[in-house]
Simulated assay, not measured.
Amino acid sequence: MEIAMKLSGLSALLLVALGVGSAAPALAMTNGTPADGDGHPAVVALLRSDGYWARPFCSGILLTGKVVLTASHCLQAALFFQQSGSQILATNDSQLQQDSAGWLPISTLIKVSAAASIVLNPAYRNGYDHDVSAMVLASPIDVPADAFPALPPTNILDELKASKYLQQATFAVLGYGIVEKPKGRWVSQFTGERRVGLLGFSALDKRFIHQSQLVNKGEDGACNGDSGGPSLLQIGGTNYVVGVTSTGDIPCYSTNVAARTDTDEALDFLTRVLAENP
């Protein structure tokens, strides 16, 4: 498949450009986490397409029918793909009809919309700093109103850490990444399913939530293809999107790192994008 070979080469160049080294972009849900089905219809896959074939490269979540919250490094990749002639799409189909190499005909997608604009966080340069950005779709993806997550109050995670709430918290992390399972050796496969994993809390700093991902203790986690997917935390009956999957250890077995969305910078940025795209 000529287009597949071409885009695979571009993807390899992109990883070099991003400087992937000791930490890797969370470009798979590990430990055989369950398929999400219709549980979180606001979670989307980001795809690059030549107009016929498409392939997921990151994940995200709809804040409204048209505004997708995702990672800045995902949208840097999207800009790279656009410059190379690819179209950027988003779909919330819970099951993608991917082949063994991860490609799918776009004609198989039920709900899909093209990117109208990519709004890269102005503070973002490279790597994983300021890794919260947004994409605006040309047409809305229809989901139930109660499926959209709430943006968190400013610095709520610091308050929750101080109150010891985070130490017992469970984060729901979602994405369309490759599934990896430890079976003597790590094996991965394309399933095309949106999946949900449950993680615990490890540490918090000014930029990131460090979530535990101890597969030997039955915990789940994100990896390849899940970058930009949400970290959801339920507080008082409200489902807040408190982070987006950003990075982690290369084997994807010990730590998931999510860029915080409760900082002044992230909330100011997202509030502005939402106001400009009602």
Score class of each variant (00 low, 15 high):
T191R: 07
V273Q: 03
Q168G: 11
L15A: 15
F81D: 09
N126G: 09
E265V: 08
T108D: 12
V241G: 01
I61V: 15
A145N: 11
V44I: 13
Q95V: 15
G197W: 00
T263I: 10
S72L: 03
L160K: 05
S59D: 07
V273W: 02
I141P: 00
N121S: 07
T271H: 14
G184I: 08
V44R: 00
A172Y: 06
L13F: 06
P25H: 10
D99M: 07
L120C: 08
S188A: 13
A35P: 05
F208S: 06
C223A: 14
P182D: 14
C252I: 04
L89S: 02
T70E: 02
R260S: 05
G221L: 00
S188Q: 15
V143E: 10
N31L: 05
G51E: 07
A123S: 14
T263H: 12
R207D: 15
V44S: 02
A24Q: 11
L270I: 15
L7N: 05
Y165S: 12
R260C: 04
T108A: 12
T238E: 10
E219G: 03
V143W: 07
Y176M: 06
C58T: 04
D226P: 01
I118L: 15
Q87K: 13
G229Y: 01
L214G: 02
F171V: 06
L15E: 14
G236F: 07
E276P: 00
L109T: 00
Q95S: 11
L79V: 09
A90W: 00
F208T: 05
P251L: 10
G21P: 01
Q98G: 02
G85M: 06
Q98W: 05
L47R: 02
V244A: 11
L214F: 09
Q167P: 00
L214E: 05
C252H: 01
K164R: 15
M1G: 12
A123K: 14
G237L: 09
S202N: 11
V68A: 09
H40W: 09
